[in-house]
Amino acid sequence: MTNLFLLQLLNGVQLGILLFLIAAGLTLVFGIMDFVNLAHGVIYMVGAYLLVSFARMTGGYWTGLALTLPTVLILGLALELLVFRHLYDRSHLDQVLATFGLVMVVTEAVQIIWGAAPLTAAMPEALSGSIPLIGPLRYPVFRLAIIAAGLLTGLGLWYIITRTRIGMRLRAGATHRGIVSALGVDIGKLFSLIFAFGAMLAGFAGALVAPILSVDPGMGESVLILAFVVIVIGGIGSIKGAFAGALLVGIVDTLGRSFGPIVLRAVLEPAAAGQAGRVLAPMLVYILMAMVLAVRPAGLFGAKA
């Protein structure tokens, strides 16, 4: 039982790390530029589709990844130039409307280009297979790699934001936009950079999951809502909050799914426990968010109320 618990904890961490990769870009754009971007999920999806195509074209996962990242970056820059740039000074509602439209456009375009059937990417040879963990329990190497990649990304982000010049400008730009641009920093350029970088993070997450999840036209939207839940729990704009929120959501969701029914069985009859477990498990993440917001209306690490 303890072994299983540890394993499920690891699973929860892995799901959380994945959510963090998606949520990090979202919370940057949201927090620094005050921009609600519903299209973030479809960029994650495009990243996965590009990886499938590039990996097939070049015959390898790593070369595919090497081509996917700059392509998503360019896509992010193009979207920023064509659409997002014109929406920075608009209300949240206008941003919701435009990015909702963009979600429809990209989802349909993906279906036209790649078809509606789910696709898959081959797993890199070096990371396939599983390693023994405890007893009969094994853990896939690739998932460990995802955890590692997520931790490295988080560390890198933290370093950039707190320890570098560009990070300093970012933090300053978020709070005192006018003063920073008066000091001669090109805010426009800075914002396009953040946006493209955020898009690349989402695309990276998509490319990471392509070998373990089905790549299909619905994958962006299911993740978008969860990513929003994560950044709201963590507090908008806070990378630290996104990290904590992502881990919390990943662990609560995973443990709730596997141990919720067991716990309920201790207090209820088996049939009632099964029914209650089935009702509660999918709601758990939302209950968590409602509870966090009821106590801390600006999330765990949020500054502005």
Binding site: N3, L4, L7, Q8, N11, G12, Q14, L15, L18, G135, P136, L137, R138, R143, V209, I212, L213, G218, M219, S222, V223, T254, L255, R257, S258, G277, R278, A281, P282
Partner: peptide, 18 residues
């Protein structure tokens, strides 16, 4: 019973393995 549209089955697979 897993959530409809669930993407990641690691928790369930761990239980099966055990």
């Amino acid at each position: 019973f897993t959530q409809l549209g669930q993407l990641d089955f690691s928790a369930e697979l761990a239980q099966i393995a055990a």
